[in-house]
Amino acid sequence: MLNYRQLHYFWVVARTGSIVRASEQLNLTPQTISGQITLLEQTFGTELFRRAGRQLELTEMGRQALPYAEQMFQLGDELEAMLRAQPDTQQIALRVGVADVVPKSIVYRLVAPSMELPTPVRITCREDKLERLLADLAIQRLDLVISDSPMPPHLDIKGYSQKLGECGISFFATRALIQQHGSDFPQCLQGAPLLIPGPETVVRSRLLRWFGDLQIHPRIVGEFDDSALMQAFGQSGSGVFIAPSVIAEEVCKQYNVHLIGQTDAVAESFYAISVERKVSHPGILAITEGARRELFTGQAIDHPATDIRDQGRSHTR
């Protein structure tokens, strides 16, 4: 059976980098900590640390064990805080997993309504690959997962997908790039440098199919799993990039770029995945209702016209 005190000593040593510093933090002798970690290693028949000169470094097994220990003691801290909280300061815990392909601006706008509830909400957001998030959802480490796709049918995990909404995509570029390639959307994308989402996103295949249907061949110069990183490259003038149309105005202001055009033929969808068919968590209800009432209203966004041949009003359906 796992000895949690020994595991705690392992965790503190891994975080501080040495038994001496851990002993100062725990107010124990180095010999006590060293002996307890040795017992932990003997229990499971594997080394967690190895000597590197005067320093300790984690073994491969130690590196694998550390994230589990971190989650366990983080949950312990949250449990202690909850139990110590006074009745008039109780908070609703909302643990949200975010698939790493979902744009951060969309995540914020989806989650924001839960922070306006009469009862204070403490939000914990965790970003990861969808399958790992769903595994944590299944064992109730998460209350909700936000993704660009519904629950994959091949996973043997109990979960229910609610479609929060969908919207078309918009294309953005710097002023210099638009002046170089023109603003006759979508023909201006022919041969233009393009930054696209990574292969794990749903929108990527839809985007490439749309280009094929139009017989337009941009020059792909970058692929990004992280939409914020793609937008940063776009801001530097590396290429044209896309974002959901519902945040078009925000993207233009934040990254100092211009809207070239928009299409509803390529849609991005967003889902809330939970273990409940009928959601009862007030934070999740606020997210789903807010998405349908405020974020995904079906209204197209027109960016104010600029002096670059009115490229902000170029659209295609």
Rank of each mutant, 00 (worst) to 15 (best):
G237S: 12
S238D: 14
S238C: 14
V240G: 07
V240I: 15
F241D: 15
A243F: 04
P244D: 15
P244A: 15
S245Y: 02
V246E: 08
V246R: 04
V246C: 11
I247L: 14
I247E: 14
E249H: 11
E249V: 07
E250M: 09
V251M: 07
C252Y: 00
C252G: 05
K253M: 09
K253A: 13
Q254C: 08
Q254F: 04
Y255R: 11
Y255V: 11
N256I: 14
N256D: 14
V257M: 00
V257K: 02
H258K: 08
L259A: 08
L259I: 05
G261I: 13
G261C: 13
Q262K: 08
D264A: 14
D264I: 04
D264N: 15
A265T: 09
A265V: 10
V266K: 09
E268V: 12
E268C: 11
F270I: 12
F270R: 02
Y271A: 00
Y271N: 02
A272M: 02
I273H: 00
S274V: 01
V275Q: 02
E276W: 02
R277L: 13
K278T: 14
K278I: 11
V279Y: 02
H281W: 07
P282D: 06
P282I: 05
P282A: 06
G283F: 07
G283I: 06
G283V: 06
I284T: 14
I284C: 07
A286C: 06
I287W: 15
I287A: 08
I287F: 10
T288Y: 02
E289G: 06
G290S: 13
G290T: 11
A291D: 04
R292L: 02
R293G: 04
F296D: 05
T297H: 01
G298T: 05
A300Q: 09
A300W: 00
A300R: 09
I301Q: 05
I301E: 06
H303Q: 04
P304T: 01
P304K: 01
A305W: 01
A305S: 11
T306G: 12
D307F: 03
D307W: 03
D307I: 05
I308E: 10
Q311K: 10
G312Y: 00
